[in-house]
Design a protein around this nucleic acid. Structure first.
Length: 198
DNA sequence: ATAGAGATGGCCT
DNA sequence: GGCCATCTCTATT
């Protein structure tokens, strides 16, 4: 396993839609006492803050949960959805509450650890969804407010993503027109994308 | 292959 | 008390 070099802070300082696409192919890494697990990011969604009805920060809603999004980019935003934890990259300049949701990764290191945590052997189903990958990597609400530029939770240079496709975001059907915005990005033909649709 | 429903828990009003 | 940026299982085509 090669040593990990987290991406520099300025990587996160690009506009949110560009960052969402730039994250594809990057390596998401979590270090724990049990060991290291990582995977290439293959699917993301951009949430554009005040004007985006699907975003938690719609209308500049500022709560205990959304507070981290008002920081400068590169912070970790985790939150709990039903029984699952979801992980976002805080994006946009300070006071602009935007974020990128990580929806799927392709397993790289720590395969056995991921299988153990997910209690299954089916490689294809280990990390192909936002709630699945956090469980496989052991990303939790405790990671809230950390930075992706240092351990234990990091984003590092990965591989060139190849062909990228974009389409509507998933699971936000109660968000008016925002549901149709093409702010979901994924690596074309990649088997670890949560689901196929435009 | 696709559709529908239940589980389930924290956050917000 | 209502609302979900989900997952898994079942039933049906």
């Amino acid at each position: 396993m090669k040593p990990y070099a987290p991406l520099p802070e300025d990587f996160f300082q690009q506009p949110t839609l560009l960052l969402a696409e730039a994250l594809l192919g990057c390596l998401l890494i979590k270090e724990t006492e049990e060991g290291i697990a990582s995977g290439y990011i293959v699917e993301t969604e951009a949430y554009m803050g005040p004007e985006d009805r699907a975003a938690h920060s719609f209308g500049n809603r500022r709560t205990k949960r959304t507070e981290i999004m008002f920081n400068e980019p590169g912070f970790v935003y985790t939150y709990v959805m039903h029984t699952h934890c979801l992980v976002n990259v805080v994006s946009g300049p300070k006071e602009k509450p935007e974020a990128v949701l990580i929806r799927g990764i392709e397993p790289v290191d720590g395969l056995d650890l991921m299988k153990k945590r997910r209690k299954m052997d089916d490689l294809k189903n280990l990390t192909n969804g936002p709630g699945k990958l956090t469980k496989a990597l052991n990303i939790t609400i405790d990671d809230y407010g950390r930075r992706f530029t240092s351990p234990p939770l990091m984003i590092a240079k990965g591989i060139p993503p190849g062909k990228v496709t974009r389409g509507k975001r998933i699971g936000i059907d109660n968000s008016g027109d925002a549901r149709n915005y093409p702010w979901r990005f994924w690596i074309a033909e990649n088997p670890y994308v949560s689901r196929n649709r435009k």
